[in-house]
């Protein structure tokens, strides 16, 4: 390093909000929500301070994996319109800073979850970060069109971790919540990929739309939606389900299946004619789908705990 470089002033010094944006705040909000519900629907009570700390650091762990994802994917983020304004491609944060930030927060988050709750929850959080960064980001994402199918598992762990924070073990209910997000991820992302195709192909990400074309992606969306619907409705009959959840699942999955069917029944020409209206509608529906399902799980638990109508037992 020369003396001159020591005194070089960076006019675009990163601000706190740039580091915050590295954590993918919107993904974090979903993580907070699902992890919190996982914790609240568990049959074991948790001290509010323990619960707060665990959820906060589960979210920070998820955010840290987002920062590590941005560090690795900076080259393709710069190519895609949707991601070009992220802190690294925008020149606000250097890749090295993002790497250090992500690694430090990952370690802190895992240690804090271990201190607040138990080693299994901390281990699951560590595995989630590893899975998202190494298995999905570094491996699957640029290698196989099934990237988001397997990578979706990373986003499915938070409610399971929330449950383990409370109970100390993994049970059928935790696996059910995991499966709900796991099966929801492919149709959610493929609906997006249908009307964002150019971005993914420019970046060289082998999205199903790019490798197998739109007709195949449309069939995949419908097939996954059928499996998702069966699973989502079936979950109503577990110990965390109840009448509110059953009603929510029936309505939402009915709408989702209808949308998926309409997506499968049309081709690119028809989609172009109305600017992918159905695909965009299904994508928007998929955004509220998870919030409402997990919200219904919580409502049933709340009603049950108040001794009101809710739950089956």
């Amino acid at each position: 390093m020369t003396d001159a470089s020591l005194y070089t002033v960076r006019t675009d010094d990163p601000e706190l909000k740039d580091y915050f944006n590295l954590l993918k705040p919107r993904v974090m909000s979903l993580v907070v929500f699902t992890a919190l519900i996982g914790l609240l629907v568990a049959p074991v009570g948790v001290h509010p301070m323990v619960g707060f700390t665990a959820i906060l650091f589960i979210a920070i762990g998820a955010g840290a994996s987002g920062a590590l994802n941005m560090w690795w994917d900076a080259d393709i983020d710069a190519v895609m319109r949707r991601t070009a304004k992220r802190p690294i491609p925008a020149g606000k944060v250097t890749p090295g800073e993002a790497l250090g930030f992500g690694l430090a927060l990952s370690g802190l988050a895992v240690i804090m979850v271990a201190l607040a709750s138990n080693l299994l929850a901390a281990g699951l959080l560590a595995f989630t970060i590893f899975f998202y960064v190494v298995i999905y980001t570094m491996g699957l994402k640029r290698w196989t069109p099934q990237n988001i199918v397997i990578g979706g598992a990373a986003g499915a762990f938070p409610p399971m971790i929330g449950w383990v924070v409370a109970t100390g073990s993994v049970s059928v209910e935790a696996i059910c919540m995991f499966m709900l997000i796991f099966l929801w991820t492919p149709p959610h992302f493929w609906a997006l990929a249908l009307f964002m195709k150019d971005d993914f192909s420019n970046a060289g990400v082998p999205m199903l739309t790019v490798t197998h074309g739109h007709p195949s992606t449309r069939r995949h969306i419908f097939a996954y939606s059928v499996v998702l619907a069966i699973f989502a409705v079936g979950m109503a009959f577990t110990s965390i389900g109840g009448p509110i959840y059953l009603l929510t699942a029936l309505v939402l999955n009915g709408l989702f299946l209808q949308g998926a069917w309409r997506i499968m029944a049309r081709d690119t020409e028809m989609a172009l004619a109305d600017d992918y209206a159905i695909e965009k509608k299904v994508f928007k529906l998929s955004l509220i789908y998870l919030f409402l399902h997990f919200g219904a799980l919580f409502t049933d638990t709340l009603l049950k705990s108040l001794g009101l109508w809710g739950g089956w037992i």
Binding site: D13, P14, E15, L16, M49, T53, L56, M112, L115, A116
Partner: peptide, 19 residues
């Protein structure tokens, strides 16, 4: 930025203490 980092560190201390 430094003020923000400082507040975050104070928050972390508070959480560890409370826990």
């Amino acid at each position: 930025r430094n003020l923000g980092v400082g507040l975050l560190l104070v928050g972390l201390i508070g959480i560890v203490f409370g826990l």
